[in-house]
Simulated assay, not measured.
Amino acid sequence: MKDSFFLLVFGTDSGGMILTCAVMVVILVSCPDDIWTLPAPSRVFVDSVNMKHILRWRPPRTACNTTVLFSVQYQGEFELLVKNDSWMDAFDCQQIPSAHCDLTFEMGSDSDYDMRVRAQCGSEISDWKKLDSPFNRRNTQLTVPEMTVKTAGDTLQVLMKEFPLSAAVSVTVWKKDEQQKSVYSVTAEQPTLLIEALQEGTVYCVTSQLMLHSGGRSNSTRPHCVLVTGPEAAAWRTPTTVTVTVIVMLGLLFAVFWSVVHCRLGSCKNFFKKEEQPQAIGLDFPVIPMLEPTQYEEFCELKPQVLNSDSV
């Protein structure tokens, strides 16, 4: 039977050659494309969290002598309708060795986006592999925002960590013993919320929730409750005052101690040198010495001499 099949395929005359060519054509047409070309990537999907969209795929299994490179294209509503069903190259994802591509910047609207990727090994290029279905950024997965709550006097400070520019954080504040709640909005440009003039000695609770402008919301954080102490009992005032006072007193004591140790007798006189009194200008009074009591009496008994005008 084996010999008969061989004769049927190859034959011995020109008719057999024609049959052989026909069989080869049938085989080439019916065989999968990936037998003769580079296989395309597989399992293409979008990993989108908090409005950051990463296209991922599985590299093809191939015995490539060089590094397999990948190129990514995308097509949105604008490319589909305005640019006649054209595809745009992802700027940072052309012939890259990694199996992922950040398309956050390219998805600038809430329309549906289609994406595709192909592999290249040397001069061999695979077919494009598309997403199973278009992706819309409104379907991004939103995580619970990270929040820090502090108090300073009668002010409540709520600090939100980094979150997308296209989203906002809804902050809810209420007194622990009351049901009335106040809702505030925090943007990425101003991630800190200050609530002033709160009631002293009251416990306030805070929760937050990430919210998209298109309406998507994340789960809420657990309530974070803090005690508002009041402006006169701010926690930083007492330790700060004590610290400054101690530093000043230590500085003064050190200055006095240094002066006592390093100021010698001769050198200290230079700091306390007594200035001589200046003499009266233009006057020359005789200096009268101090007299003893007996000399004073003798001095008083002396009669003054009167000079005549003739003796002058």
Rank of each mutant, 00 (worst) to 15 (best):
G11C: 08
D114S: 15
F45G: 08
L265G: 11
T187M: 06
P191S: 09
M17A: 15
V26S: 03
L283S: 03
R264P: 13
F5R: 12
E232L: 15
V29C: 12
I18T: 11
E297N: 02
V306M: 05
K273N: 09
R43V: 04
C268G: 12
P289M: 08
I125S: 09
V23D: 01
V117L: 08
F163V: 07
T207C: 02
D177C: 10
L250E: 03
V183N: 14
A90Y: 01
F10Q: 00
V226E: 00
F45K: 13
V186D: 09
F91Y: 15
M249G: 09
T240R: 04
D154I: 05
I288D: 03
P145D: 05
L291G: 07
S71W: 00
Q199S: 10
D13Q: 03
P134H: 05
G76K: 01
L103S: 05
G16R: 04
A234S: 09
D34V: 14
V183H: 12
P164G: 04
G16L: 02
R217A: 08
T62N: 01
L265V: 13
K129E: 09
V25C: 11
S48H: 01
T67F: 04
I195Y: 07
F70P: 01
K269Y: 13
E301V: 10
C268W: 13
S259R: 03
W57R: 02
T12M: 07
F70E: 03
L210G: 07
S71M: 04
K161T: 14
L7K: 11
C225Y: 10
I125V: 15
Q179P: 04
G16D: 03
S166K: 06
L80V: 04
H100D: 14
Q94R: 14
G251Q: 01
P41W: 02
I288M: 04
T243D: 03
K2N: 12
S309T: 13
I54G: 01
F285A: 06
L80S: 10
W236H: 07
Q199I: 13
I195M: 02
S267D: 12
G251K: 04
T62W: 00
V173P: 09
